[in-house]
């Protein structure tokens, strides 16, 4: 597996506990590239998984975790931590790789993805791995849990922030809109959702399967503060989170336009890479292109 210059975890911890950037913004693209390398290697080793929707997520997760999250990699139960729920649970290789980079999962454990007995289940399993905030994978459920976490923060007068990452195909699920209706009722400005709008789902392009357009207008109509960004631009993602935190009377939805399979040209916008592992030759090509 590719060697990697690891972060100083003590330093990460000290900064992240204060919600300070754990690396300078200009280093985020490099970190993203390394996460993409891990995603390919994990899925290749497991010979199963979802590369397309994991690769599209990399900038979103790395930017939020490295720049905007308050957390403690050694204490996933810390009451004051910011929370991030990956509602599109099939993108979890990107989350495992990011958490491992930040010292919350041992690096060698990444290569156990999807194996019998591993804590790194094919979709996140909180009971096995508490650093993931919720077991997800049945699409449509994560935002409701995020609403509950944000409500609990309100009740306890805590200033933690709750993030929830949804897939674009995922918002075809009705439960998402139940949660979309609920969050503004309590003016949950401590909740920010991010839509990984990679335009694809298992059976094809979202626009052909069940179009979600106009996604931004839909969320606005549900009384969310909506920001549209290029989901592969870390600076724009970070700015959108800052913007979200200035809003005090409603939750925010960041519609992040992304490319499914981003970074590996033969996977980009090819829906056959939604849920299949690369073979040996394809793995080599992908890793070479990513510069792993």
């Amino acid at each position: 597996m590719a060697e990697r210059n690891p972060l100083d975890i003590e330093e990460v911890k000290q900064r992240a506990r204060k919600r300070e950037p754990v690396i300078p913004m200009e280093q985020v693209p490099d970190a993203v590239r390394a996460i993409r390398c891990d995603i390919i290697e994990m899925i290749a080793k497991a010979q199963s998984g979802h590369p397309g929707g994991s690769l599209s997520l990399a900038e979103i997760l790395v930017t939020i975790f490295s720049q905007k999250m308050r957390f403690d990699p050694s204490n996933p139960e810390w009451e004051d931590r910011d929370r991030l729920i990956l509602s599109k649970g099939h993108g979890v290789p990107a989350l495992y790789a990011t958490l491992s980079w930040l010292g919350a999962i041992p690096r060698e454990e990444l290569w156990t993805l999807r194996q019998a007995g591993s804590r790194l289940q094919g979709h996140p399993a909180r009971a096995l791995l508490p650093v993931v905030e919720a077991s997800t994978g049945s699409l449509g459920q994560g935002l409701s849990i995020a609403v509950g976490m944000a409500l609990a923060g309100r009740l306890d007068h805590k200033d933690y922030h709750v993030f929830c990452v949804l897939g674009d195909g995922e918002i075809q699920e009705g439960q998402v809109w139940e949660a979309a209706m609920a969050a503004p009722k309590w003016k949950l400005s401590n909740l920010t959702a991010i839509l990984d709008y990679n335009k694809g789902q298992l059976d094809g392009f979202v626009r052909d399967i069940m179009d979600i357009e106009s996604a931004a207008a839909k969320w606005r109509a549900f009384n969310w503060h909506v920001i549209e960004v290029d989901g592969h631009d870390p600076t724009a993602i970070a700015a959108a989170v800052d913007d979200a935190k200035t809003v005090t009377d409603r939750p925010t939805m960041i519609v992040a336009h992304t490319v499914k399979g981003k970074g590996v040209s033969f996977m980009e916008n090819d829906m056959s890479w939604h849920g299949k592992a690369p073979n040996e030759e394809q793995t080599k090509a992908a890793l070479a292109e990513l510069g792993c």
Partner: peptide, 26 residues
């Protein structure tokens, strides 16, 4: 009233919201 959440006719979201509340000590 502060600890009572009227979720409307949306049971799935009610269940998920309860899980989120429980994960934060409620």
């Amino acid at each position: 009233p502060d600890r009572f959440f009227q979720m409307g006719i949306a049971e799935s979201n009610m269940i998920g919201t309860a899980v989120g509340l429980a994960s934060s000590g409620k």
